[in-house]
Design a protein around this nucleic acid. Sequence first.
RNA 1: CCUCCGGCGAAGCGCGACU
Length: 247
Amino acid sequence: SATWTVMLAAYSQSGHIKQAKKLFEVMPCKDIIAWNAMITAYARNGHLTDAIELFDRMPQRNYVTWTAVLTAFGQSDRLLQAQRLFDQIPDKDLVCWSAMLAAYAHAGDLDQAREFFGRMPARSIQSWTAIFSAHARHGDLRRAMAIWDEMPERNLVTWSAMLHAFVHGDSAAVKELFDSMPARDIIAWNALLASTVQSGDLDAAKDVFDRMPQQSLASWTEILTALARSDNFDEAKMIYQAMPERD
RNA sequence: CCUCCGGCGAAGCGCGACU
């Protein structure tokens, strides 16, 4: 059964929802994990009603089931439905709480998010990141920085969220933050790249691109659109042809 | 019997498509 679910999840991640559904239908014995994977497949590919229908028909549910549907509501900004679902979860674990917080954050409801965060039975690094980036993204930098100072621990994800708080404004700040990070991953590098592009210094951006330990598809797209937008079509074309993979 | 790992759920990046 595990092997089937791996395949199902693979179809889901590549957006082949039809194949995933077919696989789910012909699976010989479907355990709860397979059901969950199918719900997630629907939810992630925008088939919310199918996800809910499956959810209603499920023989049993666990944390993963509830959280998957909760997240689907959150990502589509259906806050009321998310709240109602959250209240129905019998024994919420920390992930359920974080998912509900993420829903408030996604909707930009900062007041409710803060209130909810304060009520959480425990706070994980995920919930700290969610409450921080919600404020950063929705324009409350002052509170975001206060949250940053209170964070009990930080990791690559929190640092990237911090970088992105300044990508659309202060490229000097991004550079300084980037240099002060304890470690850097591809997403941090992409933030530096995006910020340099934003500053308008294309040569510096190209330099960052070349200095990256490796480039992801996002890095290629970033530099490519920067070149195209500044009418450097020849260079853009060269970059495009140099891309290892295109989608 | 226990511990760890393993197939599904929560936090950070570009463009486009969808709503």
